[in-house]
Simulated scan of single mutants.
Amino acid sequence: MTILRPLFALLVATGLSALVTPVAAQDNLTLVIEPYAGSEERVRERVTEAYGRTARILGFEDGKVLDERFEGRVLLMRFRNPKDRSTFEIATNYRQALEARGFTVEWQCETRALCGNGSDGGWVKRNGMNLGIGRDIDYFTGQMPYEGGTVFVSVGVERSNHYVQVLQSDAMETGQVRVLDAEAMASSLDAQGKITVENIYFDFGKADLLPESDEAIAEIARLLSDRAEIGLYVVGHTDSIGGFEANLSLARERAASVVSALESRHGVAAGRAVPAGVGPLAPVASNATEAGRALNRRVEIVLR
């Protein structure tokens, strides 16, 4: 099992500056940046992933937001600003504390127009930062060395709230998913009438199957070949983030992608597998946490 090490430690003297201290073990991160003094964290909006995907905003030119895709350890925190503190003051305290530990600023911007937060689809779908509609925005991003590697930090501040994004390149912990073969699928279906196929993957917010899904699709096809007497429903599930109708549509489209792959790539006869989508209607965990939402985003096969 991968041992998760501290991101980094910042120790500063002023009570107005940011700190880094230990957090709860379940966060999978040993050290995180504490907020500007007097800020209130919106805990339910925290994103903590031992290995995830996001983006870092690196510029805005010619009407286009420039971002850098990232895979690795992801932390995004949102805080309510203390009263009577300017965006400039809050951003400057974070930057000074980071620079004292070797941080280098790669890009910074002020105002919504110069940052491009309201252009080219905005930022929230890229990095999770929703900096509102006001003009008063301060943002910077950069990197610092850590134990032979690199940590990327971005801070975005608007009048009411601010965000801190911490990204660390780590190797993904592997060997945590077992692909059910056709025999195991058949056994589970006989016993339960349905199973979740854990390792079917899609692009974020889309119905396009990723190549990592090929092995699971092939085993479903072999199941149907071995058990000529059965038919299946392929059922798409989503979390509750986003509109209800959009989630229903996405769930159906993802199920249809699986069925299409079974028929076009593996010669499964039309009608043996029927696509369906229930969106967020049948959760297996709470949608209040990212861990729960990840469990709810799934594909099931159901005997019919």
Rank of each mutant, 00 (worst) to 15 (best):
V284Y: 02
T2L: 08
V299T: 12
Q108L: 02
G142A: 09
I57S: 09
M144L: 13
V153N: 00
G122Y: 11
R227Y: 01
Y36G: 11
F88C: 13
Q143I: 12
A273M: 06
I301V: 05
Y163D: 03
S160F: 06
S119A: 15
A171W: 08
S260K: 15
D120F: 02
R304M: 12
A25R: 12
C109Y: 11
L131W: 04
R5S: 15
A18E: 10
C109R: 14
L295P: 05
V151S: 04
R293H: 00
D67V: 11
E110V: 14
S249C: 01
T30G: 10
L11H: 15
A25N: 05
R56E: 14
T111K: 07
F204Q: 12
R78L: 11
G267E: 03
A171Q: 15
N247M: 01
D203H: 13
I195W: 08
M172V: 14
Y163T: 12
C115N: 08
V268D: 02
I241G: 01
A256P: 00
H266T: 08
I230V: 03
L248Q: 03
S213P: 03
K83S: 15
A216C: 07
E158K: 11
G142Y: 07
T87V: 15
R304N: 14
I200L: 00
L232D: 03
T54K: 10
D62W: 04
N161G: 11
V32H: 06
T174S: 15
L210Y: 09
T87P: 06
E198A: 13
N28M: 02
G102V: 00
P22S: 00
L248M: 05
E300A: 13
Y36R: 10
G175I: 07
I33R: 06
P22V: 01
I301K: 00
F204V: 14
E49P: 01
V268E: 05
R101M: 12
E89N: 11
Q108A: 11
F8T: 05
T48Y: 05
A288W: 03
E41W: 07
E229Q: 06
E68Y: 12
D136R: 15
T104C: 12
M1Y: 13
V274E: 13
R5D: 15
V164H: 00
F70C: 04
G148I: 03
I57A: 09
A55T: 14
P283I: 00
N287C: 01
E147A: 14
F88I: 14
G271L: 05
Y201I: 08
H162K: 05
Q192L: 08
T48R: 06
A228M: 10
M129G: 05
A216L: 02
V268I: 03
R254K: 07
G59C: 07
G59W: 08
N161M: 09
V166H: 03
R159K: 14
F244L: 08
G128F: 01
D226E: 13
N93G: 15
S257G: 03
G134M: 07
A269S: 09
Q165Y: 02
T238G: 02
V32N: 04
G128S: 06
E99D: 01
V151H: 00
T196H: 07
V65K: 09
A294R: 10
G149F: 13
